[in-house]
Nucleic acid binder design. Structure first.
Lengths: 175, 175
DNA sequence: TTTAAAAGTTGCTTTTTGCAACTAAATATG
DNA sequence: CATATTTAGTTGCAAAAAGCAACTTTTAAA
């Protein structure tokens, strides 16, 4: 993301975007999930500039999302493979896909569909669930500071609750 | 995303990133979910340059993710609110948060935690499920062309299956 | 009525991208 | 074995995007 203050936001979204939020990175990961491993594969399928691809792959390797392994024993050519950390990004790709399918490609239909290999059936839509499996909407959620919250974050969240309560109050007055 | 060929990728991920993949956009959306509505709120919490914020808010409004409504009847000052299309991005934010919590902030712990408002209990981890509720991993998934697939996409997916089968074959030979 | 805050806009500088050409090693070919 | 081709980058330069600070113009407050 931007250079300066992002790190100070005390936010896992910002931290994640710091690693995968740059131009191209998520599409490179998509390619990786689609089975690409070699520099040329990524380059050709995406049409990305080679120097940018180099930079992105390096960053992904440095941060442990991909690993760079010799094609065979002792070879100096490498391929890029998803690590467990990288494979754990799959839900992000699926959520992005489903949202795009729903809101941007509704008329034409989805370009690609994720299915379960064994059954061929489409996977379930990803949604937010409570521990006991009820579906939750934005309205049903609240935010609380976690163990990693700074004082600033706690203050911010307190303020958020206040604002929210005021809005609820003014809403009930009106109606 | 990049200017040229992204649109031709026939991929909902690329389409989605075209709208929300730019620097700052996702953090602006995070702020919106956290309750910010006014220009100054976004600006102050994020420390984003004002001209960039202007551009991002405009794009988000143009694409229907936010709407710009007068603060009160007839006022010329506006606030920016999530539309249903925008609220539907919540799973993306949660997935990004959880991934960052798990892989980047494990030692310090999560800065913020999403809980169910009514019970105060943490929400469930978002994961990929089959229609009948079994958890699926990357290995369990396959991709098939959907109704919106171009010939190129179909070809690409055929090739993918081939490559995958070859790798499976060479793997079983080795072991 | 003056002051201050909100919501931008403008101009200029620094960073990032994109593109094309170049390089060096590995592999294939005759 | 010598030469060509592929692979995986690197370099240099032009164009686009981002950051910063200063400037406007309404709106709200004192």
């Amino acid at each position: 993301m931007a250079r300066n203050n992002i790190d100070s936001l005390n936010c896992s979204i910002a931290d994640t975007l710091n690693l995968i939020g740059e131009w191209w990175t998520i599409l490179i990961l998509r390619e990786a999930f689609f089975g690409s491993r070699r520099f040329e594969e990524f380059q050709q399928y995406l049409g990305i500039a080679r120097n940018i691809l180099t930079a992105r792959l390096k960053k992904l390797c440095d941060s442990g999302i991909l690993e760079r392994v010799p094609v065979k024993e002792g070879a100096r050519r490498h391929e890029y493979r998803l690590t467990p950390m990288g494979r754990d990004l799959l839900p992000i790709l699926i959520v992005l896909t489903h949202w795009g399918d729903r809101w941007l490609n509704e008329s034409e239909g989805a370009p690609v569909i994720f299915v379960e290999r064994d059954t061929g059936k489409e996977i379930a839509d990803i949604c937010v669930l409570s521990q006991d499996g009820r579906e939750l909407k934005a309205r049903d959620l609240a935010l609380i500071p976690g163990p990693g919250a700074t004082e600033e974050t706690k203050e911010r969240l307190r303020l958020m609750v206040e604002t929210w309560q005021q809005r609820q109050a003014s809403r009930s007055k009106k109606s």
